[in-house]
């Protein structure tokens, strides 16, 4: 196991480095931030001084070299707009986004798995057909439209929950979280539900497909032949088998949740990373864009590692140390 993790960490470093190269070059060859940032009345000398200050006069490979050296020290450059370290700007926003993504993920699992298993056990029932038809809506309706409809129905017409912001937060380990206060929870519910609808549909379909496949396996029939109760068969013998694909896919999709949160955060004015990156892209704030993308890369790499480890716990046939050869 530990050999596997060390090997994976080394691979991860390589992946992060290659991504840094792609991201840095990609972001630095589009647009010209100087036009956006410099006072239109500035003269040529001032503009040149400004360019020199930002280091934009040097060739790209030199800029990248400095970026890399600083990045190793934990400095991803200063935001052009806020004149603050880009990393700090993003890290401040991470808890809000993660909170949203994790709550959305939990909603998807808690609602999706029971519905999916039910639909798999009784594939011809009316309720199952309704569940499956609804899950198609979850897949196909665009997130931003559903978000706006939710605001209209639940916030504007019914007035059940607020429509924007994080609400009151409380501190845990020195980080502000919404889910710790009632007011914050009410703010959290709609955006998290909005973000989770797509994943919920995915979980329903995965759980249903898994259940349909597993119930016809010999080992389920054998479990019945052993005289086990229906509950034991469903919650132990069946669940543990269908969790394998669900965990794999959801783990990988967690990164997608964070990426998709751009839309939800914008619709619900949720002060997370997604909102920051949209603003940074509009202003060509290169260091913030680069720092954001680098953080996303790191998150994906870490998630993949965690999924592999979880997978080996769920499925004993996957022996991580066996991957050596």
């Amino acid at each position: 196991m530990s050999v596997f993790i060390i090997r994976r960490l080394m691979q991860s470093v390589l992946v992060v480095w290659i991504m840094s190269l792609l991201v840095f070059v990609g972001v630095n060859i589009v647009g010209d931030p100087v036009d956006m940032l410099v006072n239109p009345e500035a003269d040529q000398a001032e503009i040149e001084r400004f360019i020199k200050d930002l280091g934009l006069d040097r060739p790209l490979h030199e800029q990248y070299w400095y970026f890399l050296l600083n990045a190793l020290k934990g400095d991803l450059g200063n935001s052009f707009i806020f004149n603050q370290p880009a990393l700090k700007l993003i890290v401040q926003r991470i808890p809000a986004t993660f909170e949203l993504a994790i709550v959305a993920l939990l909603m998807a699992i808690i609602v999706g798995i029971p519905l999916g298993v039910y639909a798999g056990l009784k594939p011809d029932g009316k309720i199952s057909k309704t569940i499956m038809a609804t899950s198609i809506l979850g897949f196909s309706l665009p997130t931003f439209w559903v978000g706006m409809m939710m605001i209209m129905v639940f916030a504007v017409m019914l007035g059940w929950s607020p429509s924007y912001g994080r609400g009151e937060t409380a501190s845990l380990f020195g980080i502000e979280f919404s889910f710790l206060t009632w007011n914050g929870l009410r703010h959290l519910f709609l955006p998290a539900l909005n973000l989770s609808l797509f994943k919920m549909s995915l979980v329903i379909r995965l759980a249903r497909a898994g259940t349909r496949e597993v119930v016809h396996q010999d080992y389920i029939k054998f479990a019945r032949a052993k005289g086990l109760s229906q509950n034991r068969i469903i919650f132990v013998h069946l669940m543990k088998n269908i969790m394998i694909p669900v965990v794999t896919v959801l783990g990988l999709e967690f990164g997608g949740l964070i990426a998709f949160s751009v839309v939800t955060e914008t619709v619900f004015s949720w002060p997370g990373m997604g909102k920051l990156i949209i603003d940074a892209l509009n202003n060509l704030d290169r260091p913030v864009v680069v720092a954001y993308l680098m953080i996303i890369v790191v998150i994906f790499v870490v998630i993949n590692l965690v999924v592999d480890v979880l997978y080996s716990i769920l499925d004993p046939r996957v022996r991580l140390q066996d991957l050596k050869g």
């Binding site: 396996q217 010999d218 080992y219 029939k221 054998f222 479990a223 032949a225 132990v236 013998h237 543990k240 088998n241 394998i244 769920l314 499925d315 004993p316 046939r317």
Partner: peptide, 14 residues
């Protein structure tokens, strides 16, 4: 009851 295919009768994840 004992089943025909021993590769399939035991639950692989337990």
């Amino acid at each position: 009851m004992i089943f025909q295919d021993p590769m399939m009768t035991l639950n692989p994840v337990l």
